[in-house]
């Protein structure tokens, strides 16, 4: 059967690796190649010894840095998701309500950045936000500020970068759910005397909840583990867990601790990932 090909591929290269990560998170780091001690060893008398080391998890609990980084990542992900939603909703609504030729053009404008390099688009913000960058030069020239604003290497820069990068992920599911709505419902609301704002809150908004849920999770989940944006735009104190994992792995070469960090991140994300599945299934059933 041909289904077996993608099935086995995903089992081997997607599912089993998580088991390997979990196994390694219970190993002990060592100066060796690869840099950890084997979990199972046979000694000369042929006795098999298992060494399980949960010390890596205690280490995560013990050092404030890790807990702080997890909290910070969750906070940044949550706040950026809300900002994305507030910016994306009017955009999705405007696209859904435009006439069909404008709609296709606007949709293409949303999708186009998605096709251009993410890394280069984040890089573009360095030129805009740095001390003698475009934004500061423009504000100075307009006389709105006397001193350049220090935005680069702050949390604000990270928020701008995240909202900018993940905005299309929010707009598209919102648009899909808004465009499916029956316009006669709004007409009915208007005929019954509802003002546009009332009609929005009692008809449009509740009907778009599946889109809101899908979009929010599509932003929230990957942002929790984001590495590139905090690494390029954030300061040294912008601790996000993706960045911590990266430096444990590449700078400290502590593979077991990096694996423990990844395992905890995965456990934290399991619930949102399952919720996303549910939101998408609900959406498919309605279609």
């Amino acid at each position: 059967m041909v289904i077996a090909i993608p099935m086995i591929w995903l089992l081997v290269f997607f599912l089993i690796p998580f088991a390997v990560v979990f196994k390694l998170s219970l190993s002990e780091a060592a100066i060796a190649r690869p840099p950890y001690l084997p979990m199972m060893t046979w000694d000369e008398e042929g006795i098999l010894t298992f060494v399980l080391n949960i010390g890596n998890y205690f280490y995560l609990l013990d050092d404030d840095l890790y807990i702080f980084a997890y909290m910070q990542s969750m906070k940044i992900a949550l706040v950026s998701t809300v900002i994305c939603l507030l910016v994306a909703y009017p955009m999705a609504l405007a696209i859904a309500r435009a006439n069909s030729s404008t709609r296709n053009l606007l949709l293409m404008l949303v999708i186009l950045p998605f096709w251009t390099s993410f890394l280069l688009r984040v890089y573009a913000w360095i030129g805009i936000l740095k001390t003698n960058g475009l934004l500061n030069n423009a504000l100075l020239w307009l006389g709105l500020i006397d001193q350049p604003l220090a935005i680069m290497q702050t949390d604000l820069a990270v928020y701008i970068g995240i909202v900018y990068t993940y905005l299309p992920f929010m707009i598209l599911p919102l648009y899909t759910s808004l465009v499916k709505q029956d316009e006669s419902l709004l007409e009915a609301a208007a005929d019954l005397g509802a003002r546009p704002v009332t009609a929005f809150f009692s008809v449009t908004l509740p009907l778009s909840f599946p889109g809101i849920a899908a979009g929010s999770l599509l932003v929230f989940i990957p942002v929790v583990g984001e590495f590139v944006i905090p690494a390029l735009l954030g300061g040294p104190d912008t601790l996000m867990i993706g960045r911590v994992l990266w430096s444990e792995f590449f700078s400290n070469r502590d593979w077991p601790v990096a694996s423990a960090v990844a395992t905890v991140m995965l456990v934290v994300l399991v619930v949102p990932i399952m919720l996303l599945r549910l939101a998408q299934q609900a959406d498919e059933k309605k279609a």
């Binding site: 081997v12 290269f13 089993i16 690796p17 998580f18 390997v20 990560v21 390694l24 999770l217 599509l218 989940i221 990957p222 929790v224 583990g225 984001e226 590495f227 993706g242 994992l245 990266w246 792995f249 593979w255 990096a258 694996s259 990844a262 991140m265 995965l266 994300l269 990932i273 996303l276």
Partner: peptide, 14 residues
């Protein structure tokens, strides 16, 4: 939606 750091690390370990 899987964060890339997790995918990357897990594949390397595999």
């Amino acid at each position: 939606v899987m964060p890339e750091v997790i995918t990357g690390l897990s594949l390397l370990l595999l």
